[in-house]
């Protein structure tokens, strides 16, 4: 597979939130929500970012849209001619022209739509903001967008409360498409939905991508969803990316023990393959008080002295496959990813 042209390149991104105490708001420490994350998303590529709650995957997405100003690092957005602008360091008002290129789909279809606006206003707002069109033309464009996400244009005057969760998620998608962006950040777009509508939304996102070649950064905690939609996956654990690889490889041949554990923790949809494995003991590390060395070592069954002392670097284990482990490529993780039947 050839490398696509880069669209967004995240380099050594850090987002440390200060912990403040007392009336005077003295800083007593930092929550290292994102700690040295590097990730590239190519033109038309669908990249997954997975991890458990609190691993910092949502913080990464919110840094990209500049909900937060990153503590350190670069977020380079490339234009068609290959010139880059660093979104991490430009002042808020200068973001405006680049916001068009990066749109977001949110997890919660209820809180992400203003309940006091009609669909016409919600979906028309981005086009108003950039003075793309107005009046009848705007209305036609909203109708077109509603149709392309599978909603009926005649419902344009309705308010979000008239729609179910899945339909609201479609409204959110239509809003994200309105500016014809190059990158769409999907922040857990189906995890708040009912099982029977999840597939609709996943298929819609897949079809839109196939038709318009959008790039997606697809954030999820559910590996099977990522497997269905992404070409490449990055796995995060406590603020760091621990492994990146093509989707097919990462599930067949994980190199980081955490990825292997995550993979085997997912219950299989087959009652004859009953295992109930416990791939990981203990809890996720506290990002305000991270362990020394490798952040995963307290839960890792392969941990050695070196893991407690040295922070591992990202190492290339195969083409397009990186893992942040001292023993990447050396461990036999098959016992984790294919656990022995225990019942």
């Amino acid at each position: 597979m050839s490398e696509p042209k880069p669209l967004l390149e995240i380099k050594n991104l850090k987002m440390h939130f200060p912990i403040k105490r007392g009336i005077m708001g003295r800083t007593v420490g930092y929550v290292k929500a994102v700690d040295d994350v590097s990730l590239t998303i190519g033109e038309g590529e669908v990249v997954g970012l997975v991890g458990e709650s609190g691993c910092g995957k949502s913080t990464v997405s919110r840094c990209i849209v500049r909900a937060y100003r990153p503590t350190a690092g670069q977020i380079l957005l490339y234009d068609a001619k290959g010139r880059a602008v660093d979104l991490a360091n430009i002042p808020e008002p200068d973001m405006l022209p680049y916001r068009r290129d990066i749109q977001m789909i949110f997890q919660d279809p209820f809180s992400s739509l203003n309940p006091r606006m009609t669909l016409r206003q919600i979906i028309g707002e981005p086009m108003r903001n950039y003075q793309i069109c107005r009046g009848k033309e705007l209305e036609d464009r909203v109708a077109y967008l509603l149709e392309s996400v599978g909603l009926r244009p005649e419902h344009m005057s309705r308010y979000p409360h008239a729609f179910s969760g899945g339909q609201r998620q479609r409204i959110g998608i239509a809003r994200a498409l309105a500016l014809n962006p190059r990158l769409i950040i999907c922040d857990e777009p189906v995890s708040a939905l009912d099982v029977s509508v999840q597939a609709q939304i996943l298929n819609l996102l897949r079809d839109l991508q196939a038709e318009f070649r959008y790039s997606y950064l697809f954030i999820a905690h559910d590996l099977s969803v990522v497997d269905y939609i992404c070409e490449r996956v990055a796995v995060m654990y406590v603020g760091k990316i621990v492994e990146t690889a093509d989707t097919a490889t990462i599930f067949k041949d994980p190199q980081h023990p955490y990825t292997a554990a995550l993979r085997s923790a997912i219950p299989q949809l087959n009652p004859r393959l009953r295992q109930l494995p416990v791939p990981l003991e203990g809890d996720v590390a506290d990002p305000a008080n991270t362990p020394s060395g490798c952040v995963f070592h307290p839960r890792c069954r392969f941990a050695e002295d070196r893991c407690r002392r040295e922070t591992p670097a990202m190492t290339l284990t195969a083409p397009r496959h990186h893992a942040r482990c001292h023993f990447a490529g050396e461990l036999n993780l098959s016992g984790l990813s294919q656990p022995a039947a225990s019942t």
Binding site: Q198, A199, L202, V225, D227, Y228, E231, T247, F251, L269
Partner: peptide, 11 residues
């Protein structure tokens, strides 16, 4: 049952 994505099924 048919609408649930499964790991390993791929794209």
């Amino acid at each position: 049952l048919n609408s649930i994505p499964q790991t390993g099924a791929g794209r």
